[in-house]
Write a protein that binds this DNA or RNA. Sequence first.
DNA 1: AGCACGCCGACT
DNA 2: GTCGGCGTGCTC
Length: 743
Amino acid sequence: MTQDSHSLFGALFDTPASKRVVPVLVPLPVPEAYSYAVPEGMAVEAGSVVQVPIGPRQHIGVVWDEPEARGDDKSFDPRKLRAIEQVFDCPPLTKDMREFIEWVSAYTLSPPGLVARMAIRAPAALEPEPMIEALRFTGGEPDRVTPARQRVLQTLEEDIPWTRSGLAHAAGVSLSVVDGLVKQGLFETVFLPPPPVVAVPDPDYVAPRIDGPQKQAASELVEAVQTAGFSASLIDGVTGSGKTEVYFEAIAEALRLGKQVLILLPEIALTSSFLERFQDRFGAKPAEWHSDLAPRMREKVWRGVVTGEVRVVAGARSALFLPFEELGLIVVDEEHDPAYKQEDRIFYNARDMAVVRARIGLFPIVLVSATPSVESQVNGQSGRYHVVHLPTRFGDAAMPDLHLVDMRRHPPAKGGFLSPVMLRAIGKTIEKKEQALLFLNRRGYAPLTLCRVCGHRFQCPQCSSWLVEHRFRNQIQCHQCGYSEKTPEACPECGTFDHLVACGPGVERIAEEVERHFPDARTIVMSSDLLGGVKRMRLELEAIAKGEADIVIGTQLVAKGHNFPLMTLVGIVDADLGLANGDPRAAERTFQLLSQVTGRAGRTGLKSYGLLQTYQPQHPVMQAIASGDASAFYEREIGEREKALLPPFGRLASIIVSADTRLDAETHARGLRNAAPKMSGVTVLGPAEAPLAIVRGRHRFRLLVHGRRNSDMQGFLRAMLSSGPKPRGSVQVQLDVDPQSFL
DNA sequence: AGCACGCCGACT
DNA sequence: GTCGGCGTGCTC
């Protein structure tokens, strides 16, 4: 085989005599594309989605670009060369998409084929949907005209094709009436294109309902969309300030310019209320994309995206890898949300990768948050992102009055967890027939159970964490690995009955305390382990919104999305929870969570309050929340990060070490750390820095590596991965850095 | 990621 | 003597 037969350009115009060979990215963890022969008469180009044989099986791959320099042709045995099996009848991945895949692969240190696989994960969608069979009236008279037949003929007056069942339904007759007419040859069979997945959104469906600062902000974004090229904007505005309405205008403009739009949302925020807001503005819902989309729907949306039929997708992080035909705008809502981080096989932060995708595609991206991440805040300050402030609440939504409850001065009664201040506020609220929300980010009854006789603590047999008692379910559960067992009646250590004691509060225990104080109030607990699943949860949320509960006690899941018009008191039971868990972002996360929860109150003009129980009223997080001014908090966080070399000033990589047993994982993690060369600017933190987790039966440790320069980090990590004591297939790396700085 | 090959322990 | 554990290597 000659060198030039490798050239794609040459191959396209080649004589049939020489065999054409193209690189194909295959879904295997190998560092580069494999070579495949293109059979006679098969038309493929870079980006084509193909089926190729790998060993005994067939896989889906993507024809890739020729490497620019073919100097050191790492020749494999040419006798191994096999041919592409088939090309799928769908548009090839665009040049931008291919470049994006390569970038993500290099950045995340993951094999390019596995990254590419994320973009083509809807196998059955690779072939066009079959046309649907329809009947077209060709004229003529039936032998006998019955009333039912008459109705069909009337329905047919407009000369449009009908499906068999559609016609029967429209005419109000049974299928057999239609079949009878078909038998008499009154119809011809025609084929119609399949119906669109979603209706096309209309940018001018309604006039934008914004004014003042919102209008100004919207016009800045619209201008960014009109200006061809990359730009990044950060919309920074409190809950209820009209952020969504503002970015809807940017979307409208992108649609007017004939571009596709991607809205990224944290998984949990993909609620019907968001879709309805979109529909109210654009007259149609966006296509959805998330992990539990029905397979059939997934295929349709994927196909619609790649053909350009779908104009707007609202999706969770994986939607970022959809192969859009002409993407022209990305919106990342709740950009600070940790749900954008994927930590499974391919490690990436969809928010950061979205910035990269916009940069490669030369179009604008809009990041949106009431509580921007520190990274984005820094990018805003340095001018890399254009910051759009939305200072006020929109319409009549007033900010709640926020107060700290110093628990040292107002301690709860013995055996309780709610301060008298909090209890009084709850009492007043329900007296006014308004609703109170109590937030505690801890499921179950109590986080720790111990035996009063021997001091035995209930610990998970699979990992190191405590077992959490769940009274509703009569279970004790491990919140790390999911282990659970029936709550024992006697201590397993000393056998004593009735001497087990619960330590600390969970939402169930707070509910018990609330019911003791307010026996007549309608109290409801919202937690992810609510019996009855998602369906019951949705009903409960609706009931709460309608005022069918007085006091709601909930975990994190009440923090997002849902609006409760009668909610005028938000009480945080333990505002300090999560501040001291070893996570370098603990303060930031706590600030974001508390802002989000207190933002649930006061969205309808009723005077509303937020109370935060804390033992650390002077803590910067508490001060930021209470004062409503976060600037000092951000300054401090930025300073801390600078000192600790955390993003965005240094690089932070997580090396996840996983093994079948805890001991193995620990040993491997130590081994990696000890093997770490003393490289300048790179520091390795020990396994103790991160909590142990068990994922799909594998024990995981996280090693954190700090460094200042990306090249140092990558060099170091590559060295670690290739030379370290590598337990096979069980070391994964996530680079947690700001991508803008080295685009 | 799968899958085959290959080398050491407990058994019909 | 084998069955089967999972360590190692390969897939164009």
